[in-house]
Nucleic acid binder design. Structure first.
Length: 208
DNA sequence: CACAGGATCGTT
DNA sequence: ACGATCCTGTGT
């Protein structure tokens, strides 16, 4: 009906069925759509399997992390600090516990609605942070397990190519083992203010 | 710009 | 108890 996002093609299921590191990088520039709102992804983090002590799946299967063990292309959403709904996209092979966290985006469509869901704010502070992205999309736990490759509800659509890519360590995982805490598994679009914790990022050696 | 503290609740 | 966080207030 009202979905002006549909001019871009849906990202197919096969896109997600690869290593979280590959998917995290390629998600940059793609557009998350829900109703009138479209958000162009500018920052992601990969949570890998099996060797990642920062992963919610590190302790094995629990009620919360159930979606991460399922098929790729579905949403894993969890409540952080009792307040924020964090959006992850499940990646890899079914039975692996891996996903990509969407950490930041820039508004592509529906800025009015985004601002209304974000206290009327303007500028990069609107969408630079995973809790902010969840709020801007109006997400809650009802979107857990949702298939992003199907039209309707929450969708991922093809966007515009990105230029150079920034890489750096993931945020908020000080508890992880050093080799995982310091691993450059965070990715961001270079040259845009719509990215969080930019200080810890550097230009990636091998960018197009 | 940097840092401290509170909010708030499902998960472990 | 503790978060893959955010916002506000205070100080440089």
């Amino acid at each position: 009906m009202a979905g002006g996002c549909s001019v871009e093609s849906l990202v197919p299921r096969s896109f997600y069925s690869r290593d979280a590191l590959v998917v995290a990088r390629e998600l940059l520039g793609m557009v998350l759509c829900r109703g009138e709102v479209g958000l162009r992804i500018t920052e992601t983090e990969a949570y890998r399997w099996p060797d990642d002590s920062a992963n919610h799946c590190r302790m094995g299967r629990t009620a919360r992390n159930t979606p991460m063990w399922g098929p790729a292309g579905h949403a894993y959403i969890y409540l952080c600090y009792g307040i924020h709904h964090m959006l992850n996209l499940v990646t890899g092979r079914e039975g692996d516990g891996e996903a990509v966290l969407i950490r930041a985006a820039e508004p592509a469509r529906g800025l009015r609605i985004v601002r209304s869901r974000r206290r009327g704010l303007s500028g990069p502070g609107l969408l630079t942070g995973p809790g902010k992205v969840g709020a801007a999309l109006g997400l809650d736990l009802g979107f857990n397990h949702h298939a992003l490759y199907q039209a309707g509800g929450l969708e991922l659509r093809q966007g515009t190519p990105v230029g150079q890519v920034l890489v750096g360590p993931r945020v908020g995982i000080a508890y992880a083992r050093p080799e995982h805490r310091d691993a450059p598994w965070r990715f961001a679009v270079a040259g845009t203010p719509w990215v969080s914790h930019r200080r810890a990022l550097r230009l990636d050696g091998r960018t197009p």
